[in-house]
């Protein structure tokens, strides 16, 4: 009588206890069919063990690489935002330098002492001007400073707007409240400068409002960065600061 099939299988795998193994071997000595079966099963198991890795078709990697690139728009967008932030920061530095060099008080002195230092420059950007042209010069430079601040603000606003979805509703409301208050102040300062182009307080107020708006936007960008890094404590600190500014 032939051994059970699973017993033959266990025999092939060397998984039988000694007694059963001896019994199977006795049978194999007198049964050609079972001997052939064991030999074939062993050959199959040996061939299976010896199977080697298979080189995949060359077309597979380009597909994977392409799919990875398509999966990474978020990371790419993050990189683009980072570069936009750097560009905006560069504009901001430029605007700040212009803001520091633009000093209405020194222009006022120039009005009072037009000939005292004809060759002196104020911060290297403004040569002393004849008294009759001073008001016009001050207005021109104020306009230039405004343009620089506008560029900085636009860049930062773009970053903040691109990342609106990163904010929870409470933070977004705080941000909007801040910006609305400052925009109103800027609008009023612009009207005051327009009504009194030579009023130093009006000019200073306008520049101060620009600076405040830039500071709020910088806080916003810093908040985005802290949220991306998962730094809850840092984000909470910035939100708290924003709230203080809006109170």
């Amino acid at each position: 009588m032939h051994p059970n099939e699973l017993v033959i299988n266990d025999y092939v795998d060397n998984a039988l206890p000694a007694a059963e193994r001896a019994e199977v071997e006795r049978h194999l000595g007198e049964c050609d069919a079972c001997r052939a079966l064991v030999a074939d099963l062993r050959a199959i198991a040996r061939a299976a063990t010896a199977l080697e890795p298979i080189e995949p078709p060359a077309r597979v990697w380009p597909r994977i690489a392409d799919a990875i690139r398509r999966q990474e728009p978020v990371a790419a967008e993050r990189d683009r935002s980072y570069w936009k932030w750097l560009a905006a920061a560069a504009v901001l530095v430029l605007a700040t330098i212009v803001g520091m060099r633009f000093n209405p008080l020194s222009k006022q002195r120039a009005v009072e002492q037009p000939r005292q230092s004809a060759s002196t420059t104020s911060g290297g950007t403004t040569a002393a001007a004849p008294a009759g042209d001073t008001a016009q010069t001050v207005e021109t430079e104020l306009r230039q400073a405004e343009e620089h601040y506008d560029k900085a603000i636009t860049g930062l606003e773009q970053i903040a707007n691109d990342n609106q979805s990163a904010f929870d509703p409470g933070t977004a409301a705080t941000l909007h409240k801040n910006l609305a208050v400052i925009d109103q102040a800027i609008s009023e300062s612009r009207a005051a400068v327009h009504a009194q182009p030579n009023s130093e307080p009006a000019q200073q107020s306008l520049l101060e409002n620009f600076r405040t708006k830039i500071a709020v936007l910088e806080d916003t960008v810093a908040l985005i960065n802290e949220m991306r890094k998962g730094n809850e404590a840092g984000a909470a600190r910035i939100v708290s600061g924003l709230k203080e500014k809006s109170d």
Binding site: H2, E5, R35, D40, A43, A48, L51, E52
Partner: peptide
């Protein structure tokens, strides 16, 4: 279920090793 050829069926022992490609 084991609906396979049984050990009792006489099958001639193969004389050549199994080619990798055939097994695949």
């Amino acid at each position: 279920t084991l609906d396979v050829e049984t050990a009792a069926q006489p099958v001639a022992r193969r004389e050549t090793p199994i080619a990798r490609i055939d097994l695949e």
